[in-house]
Write a protein that binds this DNA or RNA. Sequence first.
DNA 1: CAATAGATGTCCT
DNA 2: GGACATCTATTGG
Length: 214
Amino acid sequence: MRLGRRLPRSFFARPSTVVAPELLGRVLVRTLADGTRLAGRLVEVEAYQQGDPASHSFRGRPTPRTEVMFGPPGRLYVYFTYGQHFCSNVVTGPKGVGSAVLLRAAEPLEGLEVMAKNRGLEDVRLLCSGPARLTQAFGIARAENGTDLLRDPSLILLSGAMLAPEAIAVSTRVGVNVGGERPWRFFERGSAFVSPGRPWTPERAERPTGSRRS
DNA sequence: CAATAGATGTCCT
DNA sequence: GGACATCTATTGG
């Protein structure tokens, strides 16, 4: 399977709401020290922007945690949440502006055995179907925060194949409960690797029946 | 299948 | 002190 070449810096240097849907179908590749390759095709993402009440960059200025989010585009922003999980984002927009795209789910392509070991379970559908799950499957943690996806060989984003507009479904973001929430969650229609989401979220009707875990 | 509790860092009021 | 871009185990129908 041809996974293409690295996405250029200019791809990321645009608003997160523009970059997000174009990230679907792209391939995240992690190369471990021993040469093992982990690869996953992105099937679900969410856009976050400065001034957006649900975004860590809402206030418009960085904190120790969110510093990377305000840096140059094309880097990985990893944050720790709920006292026990890491989640991964791709930084977008120009330096100085806090915007990013949360990587919510991927279809595992390579290195499934290592992913299963990292996750502590076997079910392929549960390896990367959620932001913290994806991050754990790829072995990403605090040390990977700030990694440049265009310079660091251990973590890159390949062009893969962008989805056709009709293959993309849109909904409000998962776990976001602020007034005026906007439709900034993008996912592949019909994919079995999209996250379950929260039980009360309205996008349930849009989700294929086959995508739920047993 | 749905609902709920528990884990507990970081930022905010 | 409380909310949070989450996940897992467990309980009940």
